[in-house]
Design a protein around this nucleic acid. Structure first.
Lengths: 401, 401
DNA sequence: CCCATATAGTTCAGATTGAAAACTAATTGG
DNA sequence: CCAATTAGTTTTCAATCTGAACTATATGGG
């Protein structure tokens, strides 16, 4: 069948409980729980929690932040939080811009910088060079705030091989099978830099730092139409790692040819290019075209209205199919779908009602609250999450060093 | 965010390792491994394996089956297998028939019986009564073979709530929100009877007792078109438990209305009724209509050929979308799609090639090898699997008794 | 026929770790 | 200032793994 599971050792229990305590602190967030509260919350004894927290504090992942003094009787507890002096750098390469952010273990965005950059067709090493400059700013900001950088996450708009640091295919950048050297962006960071897909990162950002529902489909409308599937608070990537390709669901069997080699894909109706073209918006920078489109919609120009209506209708078809297939009950719109939400939603909802009546509650179709920082937060969050989920490995590494 | 994980206790290690040993024995299958081989395979020490096996043998889940004598030097090992004297009854209610089977822990079908029964529109208690008669045969067969029955699995062609023993909706039986009493089919079986969906069970049967690939989409062509999604050797059911509804993917936005309330669903092109109707096969029993259709296809009658061609084409659209969305790389055809495979496959493959070129290797589009017993094996297998995955709970229960 | 060799399986000491209970620490309120 | 209350630590105990030594049972060469 498939691979054999590893045997359970006595020490695994501690591994798991360290993670449980980290996760509990992370979830409790701003409440800064005491050891006693963690014991109550996790089901562990106070003794066990004390011992676990001692290890986590020693390693610097968790800090004590003063006493409780809430007027209750009894000895006040020591508040605990994920250290605000450890951080991860989130980075994003997109078609029209580059962005970096510094996120501390608690999930606070401590520094943020975006620059416009026409990356389409640019050689990967050129783009990485520019991004390196931006990353240096984040490193400087971290030094200034006395934050030690554990690692980084880099999101790109394409299919990636995380293990090998390959961008397998990013059609909108015109990159095919390019090897990046993300590690070079943050020399010396103990956990390195992790490559990820933009839509997946945005979905994870939404999960960890947004509304936080455990099951939803994130729809990313950038130049391409991407998707990130969150099931049971985990990203579903599929066996090969490329699940969520909402843009290439067939929404009309007689539809036009698509750049993917197929036909009738959602992207041919609802991708940025498709919408701009159908709305007769002239060529130009993304910002300008978006302004023109919004103005045309506000002026109720028929071609623009129709373009967005069609996009909404076919997005509805794709969501109806997706919801049925994957049993999805909530959708979060991001990217240009978020920008166009006001005009898109009516057609989208009526389409959903036609093709999958009653399946998706209108209240469960929301717009991302994180806007542009969602992808950064998600990219950094993946590294933060890996520390929360396996603090034992981190402890080991820091003990050796 | 979501629910808190349970704390790790020292005893969890044994729980996990008991399961690991059970699973190792199950996987090794006919090879009947010795304790030493299990130690090598699992990474546990011989001492640990001995202790674990002792518990499993005592509870009756595992039996020793004679010595190895393979001409090697050294003391021969004691072969171990999942007990062939413990069994689970698999049961199936479908539109045109009822079936039961007796499956031992090793996955061998020890008894099997199917009867035709026009269940459409029949009251659930009537159907359960008939099924009870069949189940009694399985119980008698078990007694004769000295097999003690641990529990049962019951598959139905509809959406179920496993926890509450509800059939939420089985349109092809004309059942809506019916409560079944599956437990009554096997009074006294310690693990009870577990209700499940027919397509999901067939997919699991294929996983555990068929070709055994870890990732695939099982497509069930019964009266409705269902699907079972297997990812990483697990059934993907989605947050609400109703994932895999392949039959209601929208394959043509201008298609006809569907019984689900939507429009253009795959089922309206590729369901049994749709195909028979498009092929102009007169009403009658399923067996007769199938014969007529196969004869018409053999005679190359244009309406039949066209009907099956269309079904294949739209199935291709649905599979292209599904494969893109869920990153699926293998498909197993079951039910009438298996019967019609010869005529269906050409249209299906050319459709896949048109809508998702290169995504699905023709070699990865296969027909189920288990035929009708797949669903039974899967239904029983879910209970067997639960014993393999948590033998500790079973040990506890049997110690109390 | 017997003993060296090899492999299977068991026994026992040692280490890790959480539970449970008793204990110490720090605060409030009468 | 002391009783009550809550936080956190220390101690003892049980579960269960590893590792090493030991016993059991086979093969094969002299």
């Amino acid at each position: 069948m498939n691979e054999q599971a590893a045997p359970g050792r006595v020490g695994d229990v501690r591994r798991r409980n360290l993670s449980l305590v980290m996760d509990s602190i992370a979830r409790t967030g701003d409440a800064k729980p005491s050891r006693a509260q963690l014991a109550a919350g996790t089901g562990l004894t106070k003794a066990a929690v004390s011992s676990l927290v001692a290890d986590l504090v020693e390693s610097g992942l968790v800090s004590e932040v003063g006493l409780y003094r809430d007027g209750e009787r009894g000895r006040p507890g020591q508040g605990l939080e994920l250290s605000s002096r450890r951080g991860v750098v989130g980075m994003e390469i997109n078609v029209d811009y580059l962005a970096v952010g510094l996120v501390d273990l608690g999930g606070n965005l401590r520094f943020h910088s975006t620059v416009e950059s026409r990356n389409r067709g640019l050689a990967p090493h050129k783009v990485m060079e520019r991004l390196g400059g931006l990353a240096a700013e984040a490193v400087a900001a971290a030094a200034a705030a006395d934050i030690s950088i554990l690692g980084g996450g880099l999101a790109v708009p394409g299919l990636v091989d995380e293990q090998r640091n390959l961008v397998l295919s990013a059609p909108n950048l015109h990159w095919e099978h390019e090897e990046l050297k993300p590690r070079s962006l943050l020399e010396g960071a103990p956990l390195g830099v992790r490559l990820s897909n933009e839509a997946n990162s945005a979905a994870l950002g939404e999960l960890w730092y947004g509304k936080g529902q455990p099951d939803f489909l994130y729809v990313s409308g950038e130049v391409g139409v991407g998707g990130g599937v969150i099931i049971g608070s985990e990203l579903y990537t599929g066996p090969g790692g490329s699940a969520g390709e909402l843009g290439h669901i067939v929404v009309h069997p007689d539809g036009p040819a698509c750049s993917c080699g197929g036909a009738g894909c959602l992207e041919t109706f609802a991708g940025q290019e498709a919408i701009f073209e159908a709305a007769r918006i002239p060529d130009g920078s993304l910002g300008v075209r978006t302004e023109l489109l919004l103005a045309a919609l506000a002026a109720r120009e028929p071609q623009a209205t129709r373009a967005v209506h069609d996009a909404g209708r076919y997005l509805g078809v794709a969501l109806a199919s997706s919801a049925r297939l994957m049993d999805i009950e909530a959708v979060v719109l991001g990217g240009h779908f978020a920008v166009l939400a006001e005009w898109l939603k009516p057609a989208l909802m009526s389409s959903l009602e036609r093709y999958a009546p009653g399946l998706l509650d209108p209240d469960n179709l929301t717009v991302s609250a994180l806007e542009h920082s969602g992808t950064l937060l998600g990219a950094a969050g993946q590294v933060i999450r890996s520390v929360i989920e396996s603090p034992f490995e981190f402890l080991l590494a820091s003990k050796l060093a």
